[in-house]
């Protein structure tokens, strides 16, 4: 049995066990609140995948998490702690809405839509690169600067939503609706499952290919494992980190653009916390692009299921966040245990 296959088996089983532990924990808590675990589980499955429409809803909820999860994973793989997915996601969404309302790109949909998406990614990537510049120039830790930039981005977006982008026909803090040809096509009638989710899956597969079979993917992984060793063998560490940060920010921004153009078509002042959830998705997917597809789907099911449970049994949907937190800790601890038990320490990323 080769070691690559072995490590994949160990990773997957650790993750599945960790998810099981987290679910069990929450079921116990809910049981103490007087909800029978079997009812909760069947209700959750019914709400998240009970029929085609519900499963499409879960897939749609997985869309933004797929993008923010990939964004976090790309950065973490390279040892760049980009926690700024939240702000980058919002800025991407904001740029998309701006493109769809006040500065509509020229041409029909096949031309205007890609331009708007590129613009959204570019804005988000530049925002992310602020943190890289701050680190290079003044030694500010990226972990912290990206978090602080999140809060600043929320305020910037809020200011634009109530300022230049505000819908003049309402007093509510929201933008006008985007023009029809910049909305993403809906894949399943009667749902909001849009093309963006497919784009996210393609992005994951593309990243998998890049990480696995290209030089640049290899270099990025080496930098993540040991930046000093990477520098010694001649890998341009700084430029790889810049590249990774730009790709990470761009992915988060693209996710925001896809979400807003596929689902709501406008932006209101509320924060969505897809960025922070993306970190949980990345950890649950073990920083592996294909794992992240599965993790995002699970988290999507978690959120639609939680909404269903809130409606039916009155269980606060915030319990979904609790599951996320417990899952991440269980995965982390489980992978450390597995490393000690089944593998030599150096093999775990």
């Amino acid at each position: 049995m080769n070691s690559h296959f072995q490590s994949a088996v160990v990773s997957i089983s650790v993750t599945v066990v960790a998810v099981g532990i987290a679910m069990a924990f929450v079921l116990v808590v809910l049981a103490m609140m007087g909800h029978a675990p079997t009812t909760v589980m069947s209700m959750w499955l019914e709400g998240s995948a009970g029929n085609g429409t519900r499963f499409a809803m879960s897939l749609q909820a997985a869309g933004p998490l797929l993008f923010t999860g990939l964004a976090a994973a790309v950065a973490f793989r390279c040892g760049v702690w980009n926690i700024g997915g939240e702000g980058q996601f919002l800025l991407g969404a904001m740029t998309m809405v701006a493109c769809g309302t006040v500065m509509i790109p020229p041409g029909p949909a096949w031309c205007a839509l890609p331009i708007a998406c590129l613009l959204a990614s570019a804005v988000a990537a530049s925002w992310a690169l602020l943190a890289t510049v701050a680190e290079r120039w003044r030694g500010a830790p990226i972990v912290l600067s990206t978090i602080l930039l999140n809060f600043i981005a929320v305020a910037v977006v809020g200011m634009l939503v109530e300022g230049p982008l505000h819908d003049p026909n309402t007093t509510a803090p929201q933008t006008a609706s985007m023009v029809e040809h910049l909305r993403l096509p809906i894949l399943v009638d009667g749902t909001k499952l849009h093309l963006g989710v497919m784009v996210g899956m393609l992005a994951a597969i593309g990243l998998f290919i890049i990480a696995r079979w290209t030089m640049i993917g290899f270099e990025v992984r080496v930098v993540g494992l040991n930046a000093r060793a990477a520098a010694v063998v001649g890998i341009p560490v700084w430029s790889r980190q810049v590249l990774v940060m730009a790709v990470s920010g761009g992915l988060a921004g693209l996710g925001g653009a896809m979400q807003v153009s596929g689902v709501s078509g406008m932006l209101s002042g509320t924060s969505v916390s897809y960025g922070y959830a993306g970190i949980a998705v990345a950890m649950l997917g073990r920083l592996h692009p294909l794992g992240i597809i599965a993790a995002a789907l699970f988290m999507g099911m978690l959120s639609t299921g939680a909404r269903h449970l809130e409606g039916r049994l009155g269980i606060p949907r915030d319990m979904g966040d609790v599951v996320q937190g417990v899952v991440v800790i269980a995965v982390l601890v489980g992978s450390m245990l597995a490393t000690q038990r089944f593998m030599r320490p150096a093999q775990e990323p």
């Binding site: 922070y276 970190i279 606060p316 915030d318 979904g320 966040d321 609790v322 800790i329 982390l332 450390m336």
Partner: peptide
């Protein structure tokens, strides 16, 4: 258990957001 401090910290934040929201409801 030697888990990563950064990611564990963010998980603690998620837990607190979910837990406090639940308790508040």
């Amino acid at each position: 258990m030697r888990a990563d401090q950064m990611v564990t910290g963010m998980a603690i934040n998620l837990l607190a957001v979910g837990g406090s929201g639940t308790a508040w409801m």
